[in-house]
Design a protein around this nucleic acid. Sequence first.
DNA 1: TTTCGATTTGGGAGCGCTCCCAAATCAGCG
DNA 2: CGCTGATTTGGGAGCGCTCCCAAATCGAAA
Lengths: 340, 340
Amino acid sequence: MSGLDAGERDAATLEEVARIAGVSRSTVSRVVNNAPGVSPRARAAVVEAIAATRYVPNQVARNLATRRTNTVALVVSEDGERVFGDPFFAGVLRGVSATLADADRQLVLMMSHGGDHERLEQYLAAGHVDGAVVVSLHGMDPMPQRLADSGVAVVLLGRPLAATTVAHVDADNLGGALAATRHLAATGRTRIGTIAGPQDMGAGIDRLLGWRRAMGELGHRTDAVAHADFTVEAGAAAMATLLAGHPDLDAVFAAADLLAVGALRHLTAEGIRVPDDIALVGFDDSVLATTTTPRLTTVRQPVEELGRTTAWRLLAQLSGEENLPLSMLLPTELVVRESS
Amino acid sequence: MSGLDAGERDAATLEEVARIAGVSRSTVSRVVNNAPGVSPRARAAVVEAIAATRYVPNQVARNLATRRTNTVALVVSEDGERVFGDPFFAGVLRGVSATLADADRQLVLMMSHGGDHERLEQYLAAGHVDGAVVVSLHGMDPMPQRLADSGVAVVLLGRPLAATTVAHVDADNLGGALAATRHLAATGRTRIGTIAGPQDMGAGIDRLLGWRRAMGELGHRTDAVAHADFTVEAGAAAMATLLAGHPDLDAVFAAADLLAVGALRHLTAEGIRVPDDIALVGFDDSVLATTTTPRLTTVRQPVEELGRTTAWRLLAQLSGEENLPLSMLLPTELVVRESS
DNA sequence: TTTCGATTTGGGAGCGCTCCCAAATCAGCG
DNA sequence: CGCTGATTTGGGAGCGCTCCCAAATCGAAA
């Protein structure tokens, strides 16, 4: 209220520090950014003045002057609900934030629950961040391309469906699905169904494709497909559907651990034994996979690594490196446990 | 590279728009902020020029000039791991982001996994955000007070342990624990233990206190206490400890649903029936509570409302309202299901 | 002592916007 | 047709910093 405590509130500026230290603005700036060319004497005086005034550089001013912000957004194209349920995001976040922290960049997490899309684009385009990692893109969402067009560096985690000049990093979903299905066949299963994920996302499409291709190689029909989005409930429902249409199934490849858990739940409830009657393979190798009974055979994707690599790719782009790969594929790996 | 596509990259500025529209900077600014006092003619010209140049105001410059950013941080004093596991945060996030969206503010989510604390404080103090909601504070963490001192508006979700001038919003943890314990007693239980949460957080302390007080009222001993942090595993372990020390227990109040789930898991494994042998009450009323067998009696806390109220309180403070409450307590409510 | 190159320092200009005040324009009325 | 008050417009100053260039200072060699 009164002017008395104004000294507490109003942060000191460069100019003030300079005055107190008895040097110029420039010299203080040099010290703050520890740039070379400052005499020890001047430096000491400035350091003292900074301490005395509890000076903190105003980032906003700095951003305006340098035209960069040192912050990167992790944009999750999904609402909070889903984000917090899925261990996949936790891993990605860990990877991204580790890499960013190493590079001394600030991370801001943003999710665009549908309607917010517009505000989000505005925010990002308005110079608040240097770049963005966009994850869990659905359908042909033009957002990443638009961001890129408006000058924000963007890298996608997960391949986009739409043609775009935006780089992406992805896991070898196709290879993983291929391996899972072949494994099932190799252990003597012949009637192998699949619970496919959402077909508006690269991961969903590619895992289904992998299963299809493997089944083709084996000379098997590919009609035992049920679709579900990545939730336990949908997995259970899909399993029921699958069973209804194909009662003779002896194996199922589920495109996510969450789906496999749902399937397992349904099978158990129906008195169908896993793996004795039906073998089950999931995808992700999330914590879930080891807490079920029986523990899940699954395809491990390097979630944290995915986050780390995407962030690295973004940083590289930001620092102006040339000839960076437009896409990067990380390997997946089959982990055999008890369910197959 | 070349200057050719510079027009694409370099965003138009106010000045350029003004030149094209044939008016002054000020007039364009007025239109952009739809301030009054612009003739229809001028306005039309400006609107057209904006469209032509695909002009987007530079937030950073605006922030510097106005000394506000229109963005609010949700700071979770916990690492990503925990944040993503706990449904509590999902609810809080939903509440906070809903309120902020209504007020047309941008939300940035930040978590400070221990070491990052410093960078986080720097970031917030450096003028990037107008205010912050801080949730899940541990111990006597001075961070909120420090932020407040450096001019950032702060409201806590969950009462702080340290004395502070920072406002907070909390659920009536004490009342809830009281109700839960009394309920147990009212259904004829006499040897009531508790699994207490972390004692470095208000919620943990208050729920234990509530149980203590209720037990006191009833004239019961208060020695059947086991401690655990808010995870399923810790809950199971605590249940085991409790049972070892007090084999005659006929009821347990767990300070969180996660803990109750752990306890239930242990009891089931031991062949102890719930509620027949031991009645169990949790806290939170998260989704978990309805997916167990038997379904959990629990204390409902209005998680989303908590987020909403905290955000509201922060916005009120930001808009300079006077005489705002320093603390707000939201009611909790016992939800009786099958486990008691 | 002079001179020249290296080091250190200072201050102007500018980042893109808002805010404020003064100037210009417009209307209405005697 | 002039005067007055309201409306609209323009431009300077400033937000706090960085960047760059010129001035000042220093040191050692001649």
